[in-house]
């Protein structure tokens, strides 16, 4: 069943973009038709990460109601092996566009929510996309909450940082619960999680702390830091443990096994 998946976190630097891009790429490698959208309008990053060229329309234009959803999609399928389709809807990285998006009022945000909800009909139903990923900005920003409301499932990225743990707990209780959103937690940048017993212990501990299902635990990989946010990891390093962890997350999402 096709889905909109929002990737969100309380704090910045938790790996939302890394997860969004690599989950989307994993589904594309499995032959699915996917699109990843950059909803972090204050600090757009997909444009650089995916090295998109000659972008004619931005996601900003779609939300401003000046173009259709199809016009925003940049076909990046050539960057992925296999028969799947991989598209991106990019946020405009120019300073002027960032300033413009920061100054939007409630009326505009309400319309933007309507445009995001409409993607279900235009892309999932009409264009037969299997998955749409929303890479959001951290915390309680309008654009992020719009993305969460429009999504069918929310991937919550978090780290072991004390302020992140407390903030994520609060957000789960006061945001996702209120919107009755199905969520899966990803604990990222975990030190020393190699042993299976340790993983189980950690998974149980997380369930007790956050009261939400675990989607995955990602150890701190130096190779990811070395990549400097410059690649689609699952494509470039198919045998890397990170690729296997993301593949397992994708399997859980596909089979509705997040519980």
């Amino acid at each position: 069943m096709s889905k909109i998946i929002a990737v969100h976190s309380y704090k910045g630097g938790t790996g939302k973009t890394l997860l969004s891009v690599n989950l989307a790429a994993t589904f594309a490698k499995l032959g699915k038709k996917v699109a990843v959208f950059d909803l972090d309008f204050r600090a757009p990053s997909l444009f650089s990460i995916l090295k998109a060229e000659n972008v004619e329309y931005w996601l900003n234009d779609y939300l401003n109601n000046t173009c259709d959803a199809e016009k925003v999609l940049v076909d990046l399928s050539s960057k992925i092996s296999g028969n799947g389709k991989f598209f991106a809807g990019l946020a405009n990285p120019s300073t002027e566009a960032i300033r413009d998006m920061s100054a939007k009022d409630r009326k505009w945000e309400m319309r933007a929510l309507g445009r995001l909800l409409a993607l279900k009909e235009t892309l999932l139903v009409d264009q037969k996309f299997d998955y749409l990923f929303f890479d959001t900005s951290p915390g309680l920003q309008y654009s992020s909450i719009n993305a969460i409301v429009a999504a069918d499932f929310v991937v919550v990225a978090t780290t072991g940082d004390r302020s992140d743990v407390d903030g994520t707990k609060r957000m789960l209780l006061e945001l996702y619960n209120l919107f009755e959103k199905k969520t899966g937690l990803v604990l990222n940048k975990v030190l020393d999680s190699s042993a299976t017993a340790k993983k189980t212990e950690m998974s149980n501990k997380i369930k007790t702390v956050y009261h939400v299902p675990m989607l995955g635990i990602v150890p701190c990989f130096c190779e990811i830091l070395r990549a400097e946010g410059n690649l689609i990891f699952v494509e470039d390093k198919p045998d890397h443990p990170f690729t296997k962890i993301v593949a397992e997350m994708a399997r859980k999402i596909e089979n509705n096994e997040v519980n």
Binding site: R106, K107, E109, M110, L113, Y142, I145, N146, V149, L175, L178, F179, E180
Partner: peptide
């Protein structure tokens, strides 16, 4: 205006209908 912040501030029974 029925934006997300309004949805968040609504009582639970109305939020469900509004969503």
């Amino acid at each position: 205006s029925l934006d997300v912040m309004t949805l968040l501030s609504m009582p639970d029974h109305l939020r469900k209908t509004a969503m």
